[in-house]
């Protein structure tokens, strides 16, 4: 992906109509137009992603071309997923979708409030649950807790993609200290806060039942997220 760092100041007069034409085609399911859009406007999205990465305190990623390229690709896929909802009268797609892009980048690289993992060769003490979901982000980054991995896999297998994302984002926002995660998640996924809470609580209830009924999920029975 492009490593250009300029913002949108050099938009050409015909850029907007070009973007509108391509976004309309993408919204109609023409993925070839998606490749055209990426080819012609990659630097805009690359710039935004770089800004998010810097904002999240992860300048180290800027030096990793492969990882940065992956993030930019993710950002483009966010735009593709939402192409049908974009309006040519509004902001350019990468500005319009910047919250969702930021969310995707955050999922991938962490957050500035999250301690970075430094491999200094010293073996760390095994992670142990504290009963507090503040451990979630750190644990996800470490991928060190098989029960969390199992929980996420089970969630993904048993819920729609939207609900899965809502649940995980809710947990993540909680762990960030968000006083009202249902509102934040609701804005991100265009779901009413009440519905977010409902999705979240139904998920916990269903996961408890799954853990109780399925011997393969036995290890989840004492997991903090499912505890009453």
């Amino acid at each position: 992906m492009a490593k250009i760092t300029h913002a949108e100041g050099n938009l050409r007069s015909d850029d907007r109509s070009r973007v509108a034409e391509l976004m309309a085609r993408i919204g109609d399911g023409d993925d070839a137009a998606f490749f055209v859009l990426v080819s012609e406007f990659d630097s805009r999205v690359a710039y935004i992603v770089r800004q998010f990465v810097i904002d999240m305190g992860r300048r180290d990623i800027l030096a990793d071309e492969d990882e940065l390229s992956g993030l930019v690709t993710d950002a483009w896929l966010v735009i593709r997923e939402r192409a049908g909802g974009w309006s040519a009268d509004g902001a350019m797609p990468w500005r319009w979708a910047h919250l969702a892009i930021r969310h995707r980048v955050s999922e991938a690289v962490g957050h500035r409030t999250t301690p970075l993992m430094e491999d200094d060769g010293v073996e760390e003490a095994a992670w142990s649950p504290t009963g507090d979901c503040e451990d979630l982000v750190l644990t996800r980054l470490r991928c060190g807790d098989p029960r969390l991995a199992l929980m996420l896999t089970t969630l993904k297998a048993n819920f729609s993609e939207r609900d899965y994302l809502v649940i995980v984002e809710y947990l993540q926002q909680q762990s960030f200290g968000d006083p009202s995660p249902s509102h934040t998640v609701g804005r991100l996924y265009r779901v009413k806060p009440d519905n977010v809470r409902q999705i979240y609580h139904r998920a916990r209830k269903r996961m408890r039942k799954l853990a109780a009924d399925d011997p393969e999920l036995e290890s989840l029975r004492g997991f903090w997220w499912l505890a009453a």
């Binding site: 992906m1 492009a2 490593k3 250009i4 050099n10 490749f35 990426v38 080819s39 012609e40 406007f41 990659d42 630097s43 390229s69 992956g70 690709t73 993710d74 483009w76 896929l77």
Partner: peptide, 14 residues
């Protein structure tokens, strides 16, 4: 157009 030739393999894979 004015974009540099970025690699699109990953996009294709995704």
């Amino acid at each position: 157009r004015r974009e540099p030739e970025s690699d699109l393999t990953l996009l294709c894979l995704r």
